[in-house]
Design a protein around this nucleic acid. Sequence first.
RNA 1: GUGGGCGUAGCUCAGUCGGUUAGAGCGCCGGAUUGUGGUUCCGGAGGUCGCCGGUUCGAAUCCGGUCGCCCACCCCA
Length: 456
Amino acid sequence: MPPQSFSRLPGFRDFVPGELALRNHVFETWRRVATRYGFHEYDGPPLEPLGLYVEKSGAEIVGQLYNFDDKGGRRVALRPEMTPTLARILAERSRGMPKPIRWFSLPQLFRYERSQRGRLREHFQLNVDIVGESGVAADAEVLAVAVDAVRGLGLGEDDFVARVNDRRLVTRVLTAVGVAADRHADCLAVIDKAGRAGPDATGASLRALGLDAGAGDTLGSLIADGTWEHMKQRFADVPAVLEAMRPLAEHRAILDAMGLGGYVQFDFTVVRGLAYYTGIVFELFDRAGELRAICGGGRYDRLLELVGGEPLPAVGFGMGDVVLTELLRDRALVPAEAPACDCYIVWVGDEERTLGMSVGHRLRESGCRVMYSLRSQGLGKQLKAANRAGAAYAVIIGPDEAASASATVRDLRTGAQDTRSLESLIEHGPGGDRATSLGSGTGPPSRGGRAERKAT
RNA sequence: GUGGGCGUAGCUCAGUCGGUUAGAGCGCCGGAUUGUGGUUCCGGAGGUCGCCGGUUCGAAUCCGGUCGCCCACCCCA
């Protein structure tokens, strides 16, 4: 039998060091931002009882579940989203917790769907939720985290926007234009896909729902021009609608005060697909409109109760790594890979090898990242390897140095070199200041920092 | 799940009215260079042309199937 070859499962990713570095960069930014807002990180199992999703999530999610029966006959599924896990955890333990609960997580999620750009069968998400606070300040706070999580990666107002709406407002508008309550869900679906379907198809869909011409025209014009001002004018004499606009006005005022108003835009067509949202909803998109949603979220005040917990209002979002990473690549915001080595030990002949490894190890014990050649090589080869490893210094040990318990330290950037005692080298580090091993490259990424990676 | 496009070296791709040893650039390895790197020059390795089958004297090239990737629908991170 010839050896069998195994390829990666479709929709799954390998993270070789360069790609893992980018993933870690995103994760670190997410954690830094969420922590800055006072959120605590949690996690749960990647495998959950199938019922947790079947009962609560819609048929959409259930059709995409990775599920199977385990050896104990339990029906289980890989988690397709984090919110049910959060709800399950809190249903059990929220009663004793001070409210509001501010939690975030970076779960890997799984959905069996056909993969395409921005959509895989596995992805990581930043999930941020505030549970136990119904005020609109919590909605604004959560959206601010989402915006800052993206801003922290170097993207700005020109790159992305949060489109915001309120489920309650849409309901009031539908009622105001005369749509029967039992038609609301269908209407939401039409509004949701209006941007993709275009005005003609949308008009046809609305007529197919049996809306009269007046209602259809009003909705059509709101979809075509769903600005805040337009809404105010159109419903100036409908108190029910004006009242329903108040939470969003306050929401916007808070974000303006935070200096994030430029990232927020009212959009009547953002209603979001699934059922559990009850109030303000939002999605983050790239401004160019080339990619799928970066992030989606909103208020879900009923969910915890539905899962058997105490009735607690909640608001949160999920932000996926796949689309966001594509956007970073497009905008050249992927930071150059940091070198893994501070100091490369070079020995002239095999006789100096044990001394070199001894010095190298003592430098490592003081925190310096040290590499050296694992086989016999000429000096030129070793320096070449040092250069490629990104080392700032080469420590050269030959017969002369060995005889005098010293080493030649070469600054690989400037080419300057001097000879000093091994004792001094180990005590002060190759840079002479003991600082070479710490604090390198933690600044924010700069544009154009990607392609130049192989400047060597 | 439905429809369309595309699969040639590690990467980006060229090569098809069917023709004998399948190419380039980059990357990788080695040498020039046995006490001094980045440049340059020279050399080398690496391919069952996604896979299976069919047509043919002959298939990377044509046909069928299959798998994978991409795009659209659907929906969403």
